[in-house]
């Protein structure tokens, strides 16, 4: 097997591993004004949140929801 073919297989394997990890295992706590403990939120849910500008970091480094109640319809940027 040549160097290029090895790189191709490695890239595909790496991509698949990252995708599966992000989709099924990667979870981060997201806090809101009414919740100090934080909700464990999957990465796919985080993708949806960032697509509407629904997350920010506070000064402590915690992930905070930018809204309460109904989510915004679209990202403000």
């Amino acid at each position: 097997m040549s160097k290029k073919q090895t790189i191709t297989i490695f890239l595909l394997g790496l991509g698949l591993s990252m995708f599966l990890y992000g989709f099924s295992m990667h979870v981060l706590p997201v806090y809101s004004e009414n919740n100090d403990k934080g909700f464990a939120t999957s990465e796919s849910a985080l993708v949806k949140e960032v697509s509407i500008g629904g997350l920010k970091r506070d000064t402590d480094g915690k992930l905070l929801k930018t809204y309460t109640g109904a989510p915004p319809k679209a990202c403000p940027t």
């Binding site: 790496l14 991509g15 698949l16 990252m18 995708f19 992000g22 993708v47 960032v50 920010k56």
Partner: peptide, 24 residues
């Protein structure tokens, strides 16, 4: 998504993984 995750100092496994699969 990558830009927003970068702004939040998170690694976008889904986005990067998907792009690696498609690009590869």
């Amino acid at each position: 998504v990558i830009a927003q995750f970068s702004a939040l100092h998170m690694f976008p496994f889904i986005a990067i993984g998907l792009l690696l699969i498609v690009a590869g």
